[in-house]
Design a binder for these strands. Structure first.
Lengths: 201, 201
DNA sequence: ACCTGAACACCGTTCAAGT
DNA sequence: ACCTGAACACCGTTCAAGT
């Protein structure tokens, strides 16, 4: 807030004339950034899945450029005009892919959550200087695990940390799209719902 | 930091004897919380998917109790003993479900990311008093959208905001499990990977 | 060796006072 | 009416000084 104000040659208090809080300022920034996301569906030659992947990838890349916005995007659902345009685009692509409308409605939410949390997670890794390198921490922990106590973890030692971030993002995207396209998951058996009831207190 | 120190009847500086930074303290707290997650696989009567759902649901619920830890869990991959036990458990359940080992290795990461970002997102909604109510913001934005400019969004108006948080979480879990179990997505066509290359600068 | 009071360098937000 | 300097109430972290 203070740094931004300084960059604009004014005091921090002046920003409160235009935004009620830091959170709202970031929400506005986020929507502005989403305006930069590539929406390639007009020149529609590639299959819908590829175009959807392009949109999602572009979203993550745009957030990468502004780590502080990326970090807050996990907590703030944007509702500005550019965000609505992105939602419309994703729904249109899922529709083109023959995804049932109920699954598409809940699916876009899942897709946005996936892109957003991916961007947030990686934003910390790169930019924050004092940050612990989680990756190497986790790798080390997995490497030293015993086959007796953790047989699966030990067996999949290498597979767990294999692949580039990009490749894994794309893989997760395929997982989600495959799941969304699957009709069976559109309904959840009633009996499972009770599992998620929050305990009082 | 200062509040925690006060609660322990000491100065904030004393905490730095045990933890190098706030982030490390939270990482330790997170692993401790993960120790509270229910791992029901020993009494194995229910199908593996249901038991996996129980573990995931328990994870989210445990994080709900400590919103500040939940908020940081998106950025910190825990590598403590309890986290490794949770990973082992999830891998064991996926194995029991016949999921190919490569898919399971990447799948657990996706599952943790899903649980974590869900907990983080909802943690802000409930606890932070000054926070904007995103849900109603988004609902209002969607409600006022024009059918001309946003046909899909307009058509799916109700479906987009339908359902309880619990139901949607469970649905997303089914989506991910279905996708992971699907063999086709285990390999990503090489050509798509170039899409995710980060631009220099 | 282990702990900590006090200081340092920051935050976001408010509000009375200025133009 | 619109803007802002200064103050308020916080942070995390460091380090010299204490036991």
């Amino acid at each position: 807030m203070r740094r931004l104000a300084a960059a604009l040659d004014t005091g921090a208090a002046s920003l409160y004339v235009y935004f009620r809080s830091t959170e709202q300022l970031y929400a506005a920034l986020l929507d502005e950034l989403i305006g930069e996301v590539a929406l390639p569906s007009l020149g529609a030659e590639e299959p819908w899945r590829d175009r959807l992947a392009t949109v999602m990838t572009s979203y993550v890349m745009v957030l990468f450029e502004f780590p502080s916005v990326a970090r807050l995007s996990v907590f703030t659902r944007p509702s500005g005009p550019n965000s609505l345009r992105l939602l419309e685009e994703l729904l249109s692509l899922l529709d083109e892919g023959g995804v049932e409308s109920g699954a598409a409605a809940w699916g876009v939410d899942l897709l946005i959550q996936y892109a957003t949390s991916t961007a947030a997670e990686h934003s910390t890794r790169n930019e924050q200087p004092g940050t612990i390198d989680d990756d190497s921490d986790v790798s080390r922990a997995i490497a030293t695990v015993s086959a007796d106590t953790h047989p699966h973890l030990s067996k999949l030692r290498d597979a767990l940390v294999a692949g580039e971030a990009q490749e894994r993002f794309r893989w997760g995207l395929e997982v989600i799209l495959t799941g969304i396209a699957d009709q069976k998951v559109a309904r959840v058996p009633r009996s499972y719902l009770s599992l998620l009831k929050r305990p009082s207190g």
